[in-house]
Simulated scan of single mutants.
Amino acid sequence: MTTPTPTPAGLYVVELVGGVLDGQVLDVTGWSEDERAGGALLIAEVGLYGPGGRADYVQRPGDPARWDWNGDVP
């Protein structure tokens, strides 16, 4: 697994923690600070809502390189 760290250009990848995408890395290159602060609804084929459902991930307070699972949504 890649350790989530800023790239030399200040762009980021983040580690997803918890939920069905636990341990995966999300490329947020080009996302603004506001976009990163809003988190992400990511397609998750395996989850509470099955294929087409989404996993909600939000920035961990005090550790923006890790995003915590916030639940599944249809």
Rank of each mutant, 00 (worst) to 15 (best):
R60D: 13
T3P: 03
G71M: 05
D63V: 05
T3Y: 10
P6C: 00
G23N: 03
V17A: 15
E33Q: 11
L21F: 10
L42S: 06
T2W: 08
A65S: 15
R60P: 00
G52P: 02
P64K: 07
D56T: 05
G10Q: 14
G71K: 09
R66L: 04
D27F: 04
G18D: 07
Q24V: 01
R66E: 14
P61M: 08
P64Y: 03
G62Y: 10
E33K: 09
V46T: 12
G19W: 00
A37T: 10
R54Y: 15
Q59C: 06
L21G: 07
Q59A: 15
L42T: 02
Y12A: 09
L11A: 14
Q24R: 15
V46N: 05
G52H: 03
W67L: 03
Q59R: 15
V17H: 09
G30R: 12
Q24G: 01
T5P: 01
R36I: 00
P74L: 11
I43M: 13
V13P: 02
G39L: 06
L41F: 14
P6S: 13
D72A: 13
L48F: 02
D27W: 05
G30K: 06
P61V: 12
W69N: 14
P61F: 09
N70L: 06
T29I: 00
D27V: 12
G50D: 08
E33F: 02
A65Q: 13
N70F: 07
P64D: 04
D72K: 01
P51M: 02
W67K: 05
A37Y: 01
R66P: 10
S32I: 01
G47K: 00
V46C: 03
L21I: 09
L21E: 09
N70E: 10
P64C: 11
G18I: 01
V25K: 05
W67G: 07
E45Q: 12
Y49R: 05
A37D: 12
G47R: 03
V25R: 11
W67H: 08
D56V: 13
E15H: 07
V20W: 08
Y12D: 08
A55H: 10
T7M: 10
A9C: 07
E35M: 11
V13W: 08
L42Q: 05
N70M: 08
P8N: 07
Q24W: 03
A55S: 13
V14C: 09
T7R: 14
A44M: 01
N70R: 15
I43F: 03
D34S: 12
V28A: 00
G53Q: 01
A65Y: 07
